[in-house]
Nucleic acid binder design. Structure first.
Lengths: 195, 195, 195, 195
DNA sequence: TATGAATGAGTATTCATTCAT
DNA sequence: CATGAATGAATACTCATTCAT
């Protein structure tokens, strides 16, 4: 029999990330993705149930990777809560620095994902957020962070701001250097605007 | 000259906001909007160049209103920069409290807007942001706010977080009371998470 | 507004009958039907819900016409049951003689119809069969026909044979003259093969 | 030489009859047939040229069997023409009673067969019909049957009726007991409806 | 202005068939 | 003989937009 050569699933996924980033999920054509992945159109459907499924797998892959790196951080007892928050932010910024196309898909197709999977896209995304919450909770308990902060609200606060900043950066990377964004972001999260 | 009885343009706009909020821009059908507005399908094209144009006008209307209210605040010399920031935040929260459908369109169709109009959707949106920036700049000069803050970055920071929080609220208004979101939001913007 | 000119629904129906007869329902393409009907592809969907719906309407139209002509015969008290059976057979033979394409669709796409509408394709088809049954029942009561005949079985017996004969004729009209088929058919129905 | 253990061709054929009967020829998938037959998809093409070929072989097998049994009847000089007709009818009814799936394929996929193979599907089908014709011809010569009957027409008459009756029975076997259908059928063929 | 019938471009998905092993 | 991964052609249906009235 004809045996699987290479890793077609990964090829398709990579092509899809690129095409989705450049043209958006809606305008992306399966045939175009297949072309770029070097497979036949029909082969896409050997690895993915449908177009939606491709986007879902992109998100899953992303958050699984982020989550696995996150627990390495949160499990590190040598770090203070403040250092953990710093490391978490770095984690996200690094991920998207290394994969700008993934960043673009992440920020742009949020709404597509919501429509596809009813607003909880990924097990690992949820786990990531939960793990992040734990860090804040610890920090509050340890007296580093303000106890008035509602964790659910903070979660959406931080993710909204980070997503929007990465969006702006991904659109025109030259205008806003990521290092400056990262530094300002960390400062604002920690201290807000007031002196 | 015959005076128009109703205001069809406004009727269409209102119908569009409602339909966009309920079904999303992509799935919304012109014929459905026309129906709900009580006009013929073709008539939509007497008032709007195309479907995109409807969304653009929704954003313009929104930001024009917000901008006009903003300058009333920023022009009020009795207010301190801190009070002005508070008032700005209230302005946005109040607007979306009063028009939840507009809020939903605003948060969900950001990406549609980006694709439609490059990435600056509205003159008044820009003016709103610029005016907001001025407030922060004043506050820095007057020594209220931290001088290390990059204004462009702060702009995206605050808008990302506010949009995401409103999104979550719009999805399930019962879970997160807007008053609590507003209070936490103001606190985080001003002081961050650290004690 | 642009006003309906001609009768597009009828044009499409006629084109569909022709295309279905020549290529079969499955291989027929909507665009081809639209072409031949002189309308745009999309216009087909103004008049028909989908491809299946076209076939359904062909059957409905056929049987509605046949039924309305049948009741004229069955209601005629001057005719004996034997004459009525003769007239019924003539009715069907005449209909298909005048519309050979309809005959071909009727005989060939029976199975398509079954799959589409769960084996009862048309109100009027049922009514036609019921009315036909009444004639036989009368004939039995009046002592013309054999009382051992099961009406449901006879119904399928006669329709199967007539359909198959028309099929053969429609395929190669030259080989079997319809007049001869009709004459033999009437004889067999009435007397069977035995002397 | 390695002797084949099972008989894959027969396995595939049996699986195909079942699948065709349950889902229809068009909707039947080769992969599904292969699955049920316990072979790989590609192996189907070692035994059959293509999907059509499977249906053709089903018909051939059916009619070859029927033909071989028919000549045993027609060659039996102890039987009168009337008894031979009775036996022929029994032959068909028995075959389909024993193989309801084959019956369903036979009645439902007639049109598929026509499109596939012109309109003469099987050598043995033709031979069967020819042999049947001979019986009628003998019967006419011997004075049992009416001499006005056109043999070609009778052939299509009887096959149409028998196919339709079996179709109805196959759809809802409980409604019409086959024994009653068989009895009525024989009567109608022999004597028609008139007393 | 207003209408709404008409248009026709655009695309995800299936599945019979092939072929490298 | 056997496999099953890979292929890629083929098509119904939607809906933003137009235009004859």
């Amino acid at each position: 029999m004809r045996v699987k050569e290479g890793n077609k699933e990964r090829d398709i996924l990579e092509a899809a990330v690129d095409i989705f980033a450049r043209h958006g999920f809606h305008k992306a054509k399966i045939s175009q993705i297949a072309d770029q992945a070097g497979v036949a159109t029909g082969s896409v459907y050997l690895y993915f149930k449908n177009k939606d499924d491709i986007l879902i797998k992109i998100y899953n892959t992303l958050w699984e990777k982020l989550y696995s790196e996150l627990i390495a951080i949160t499990g590190n007892e040598a770090l203070s809560p403040i250092e953990k928050v710093d490391a978490m932010i770095d984690l996200i910024f690094d991920m998207f620095t290394e994969n700008p196309s993934v960043a673009i898909v992440f920020v742009n197709e949020q709404e597509s994902m919501n429509r596809i999977s009813g607003d909880k896209y990924s097990l690992y995304y949820e786990k990531f957020l939960d793990e992040g919450e734990k860090v804040i909770k610890e920090g509050i308990k340890a007296g580093f962070f303000n106890k008035n902060i509602d964790l659910k609200i903070f979660r959406h606060f931080i993710f909204g701001s980070i997503r929007n900043l990465l969006h702006q950066w991904a659109m025109t990377p030259s205008k806003l250097p990521l290092s400056k964004i990262r530094q300002n972001f960390k400062f604002l999260i920690k201290h807000g605007i007031m002196k």
